[in-house]
């Protein structure tokens, strides 16, 4: 039981919080701009490398430098939207999807050109685990990831339900034509979508990068589970995407627990496939997700 909590449940929540933060952006971009953003994972990587570059200049705790990564990711997102996505906005969205594939590649190759392609470890050394009641050994990073995500979820919820910008975002996600007729500033909504999506992606990326190591494929490898989480939560439902992230994270980790007999239920090498299978099954049987999202 203790083993289950220490090695499966808690890591599940930790990777779940990474997926949750990434999936929020994917879900909002899909809901508001109407396309699946395939460069979102690499946008995460951009944020991670922003933090990494900052730690080289200012050797302090990387958490203090997360805003640098967020700023870089936000800038990158607004830039590619302006230069690459916006000119295609009047065409069928599939062109923007193809374009976002290209942007994913552009982000990654820029990271590889500037940062090199080797693994980078954030230089904070080994962190002793938190030990509770002599039995629960928790990585402090995992605790930080889960609590940060919980705080962000609350703040985001308040923002979306109370603020003018947040309500406008939900309105555009609901019905872009009616939003235009109501005179809402859709360009501002689009801008805020990128700002929030990119900022959360950067935070998610830092948690993922600190947990293992930062490398140029970091974000791309997380992309499909994040899509799975966004679909699970229902497109255009940021809170659903959060829940979806945790569900996918837990499903991945718990799938390799020895539920029956001695061996893992699903070999850990197929752990990532669990998310894809959930995603494909959802797409086919319940594309509106668990929380009644939009069906685009």
């Amino acid at each position: 039981m203790i083993e289950f909590i220490n090695f499966y449940l808690v890591p599940g929540f930790a990777i779940g919080s990474v997926y949750a933060l990434g999936a929020v952006g994917i879900s909002m971009i899909f809901g508001i701009l109407r396309f699946a953003h395939f460069a979102h994972g690499d946008l995460m990587t951009v944020g991670v490398y922003g933090v990494f570059a900052a730690t080289v200049v200012f050797p302090v705790n990387p958490f203090l430098l997360v805003p640098v990564g967020m700023a870089l990711a936000i800038f990158a997102a607004l830039f590619v939207d302006k230069v690459f996505y916006q000119p295609l906005r009047k065409l069928p969205t599939i062109y923007t999807v193809i374009s976002s594939f290209g942007v994913a590649l552009i982000f990654r190759s820029l990271i590889q050109i500037i940062g090199g392609s080797e693994n980078r470890v954030f230089g904070s050394g080994i962190r002793p685990p938190l030990i509770l009641f002599d039995t629960f050994r928790l990585s402090s990073l995992h605790v930080q990831a889960v609590t940060t995500t919980a705080v962000i979820a609350v703040v985001l919820h308040i923002f979306l339900s109370k603020s003018m910008t947040g309500r406008s975002m939900r309105a555009v996600a609901d019905d872009p034509e009616l939003a235009q007729i109501s005179g809402l500033d859709t360009e501002k909504v689009v801008r805020w979508t990128w700002i929030i999506g990119a900022a959360l992606a950067a935070i998610a990326g830092v948690f993922a990068g600190l947990d293992t190591s930062a490398h140029p494929n970091l974000g791309w490898n997380l992309l499909l589970p994040m899509f799975a989480a966004a679909i699970l939560g229902g497109i255009g439902k940021p809170m659903g995407a959060m829940a979806g992230g945790f569900i996918i994270g837990l499903a991945e980790e718990l799938s390799s627990y020895h539920w029956i007999g001695e061996s893992a239920l699903i070999s850990p090498s197929y752990k990532t496939a669990v998310a894809f299978v959930i995603m494909i099954a959802l797409l086919i049987f319940k594309p509106q997700g668990l929380f009644k999202g939009r069906l685009l």
């Binding site: 699946a36 969205t93 599939i94 499909l224 894809f276 299978v277 086919i284 594309p287 685009l296």
Partner: peptide, 17 residues
């Protein structure tokens, strides 16, 4: 039956599997 964006995700997922 999936629309293009979803088919893109599904086909990448299958390629990865």
């Amino acid at each position: 039956r999936l629309k293009s964006d979803y088919l893109a995700m599904a086909s990448i997922g299958i390629a990865e599997i």
